[in-house]
């Protein structure tokens, strides 16, 4: 039961308390691109959820494994000189490398599986969106944030992973609807029409979400 509560906490954290897109700009470019295309928001958000959750869980396991093998890491650093484990935060660099590598392997596996599926409209749609959804600053930030916060709860990691997709959906929907309003607004000055007005609108949305997070950056 407590893991389920942790999961809900993780999801609420990712969506509201520290909205990943507005508190760190994670996935901002992909969010703006998805906001232009009404039909792909749900699929992209779902894929982000899946990739975030799976990579968060895999990296949690790696985290625990690496922490338990500290002696080996220290020996390695002593043996090879410059890779000193005494430097502050050294583990972060190694962990980030491993997190990214795991995400890459996951991405390749999924693409290989999809590649050998029979040809269909859905396969083409999936292939289009998998790259953008998987190799995304939002997805790679989940294991990084969990590591920086020294969080080892499976439920929280899963909740944060799933919450990343929900956060992406909520934010993209808000920005998409805002873009529709802006498109109908003929009074926008020419200097602000298009990208500038959209960015200012997104900034004001981020200001609205600051009420939850207090404006603190994720990192």
């Amino acid at each position: 039961m407590s893991e389920i509560m942790y999961m809900i906490n993780g999801a609420i954290y990712a969506v509201f308390l520290h909205n990943l897109l507005f508190s760190g700009g994670l996935g901002a470019s992909e969010m703006l691109r998805a906001a232009q295309r009404n039909s792909e928001i749900v699929l992209t958000s779902a894929l982000i959820s899946v990739f975030s959750a799976v990579s968060a869980l895999l990296n949690l396991g790696v985290n625990v494994l690496l922490t338990s093998q500290r002696d080996i890491l220290e020996w390695l650093s002593w043996r090879y000189g410059i890779f000193s484990a005494q430097l502050p935060g050294m583990q972060v660099v190694w962990h980030a490398f491993i997190f990214a590598f795991i995400l890459l392997v996951l991405y390749l596996l999924v693409n290989l599986v999809v590649h050998f599926l029979p040809a269909s409209k859905h396969k083409l749609l999936f292939q289009k969106r998998i790259g953008a959804a998987a190799l995304n600053t939002l997805v790679i930030s989940i294991p990084l944030l969990l590591h920086l916060r020294a969080n080892t709860s499976i439920g929280f990691a899963l909740g944060m992973g799933l919450g990343a997709g929900v956060a992406f959906y909520v934010v993209t929907l808000l920005v998409n609807s805002g873009m529709h309003v802006l498109r109908q607004n003929k009074a926008i000055p020419t200097q602000f029409s298009g990208v500038p007005a959209t960015l200012v609108y997104t900034g004001l949305l981020a200001l609205a979400f600051t009420g939850f997070a207090g404006g603190l950056s994720l990192f």
Binding site: I12, F16, L17, L173, L174, N176, S177, G178, H180, V181, L204, L205, L207, A208, F209, T210, G211, F212, A213, G214
Partner: peptide, 27 residues
Amino acid sequence: LRHLGTFEENVVFAILLANAALPAIYR
């Protein structure tokens, strides 16, 4: 926001969120 938020007074943020939510509801 008053339950989950950070600041002493959060009503202005709630109004901004409501302003942003309306186009989404219409959408």
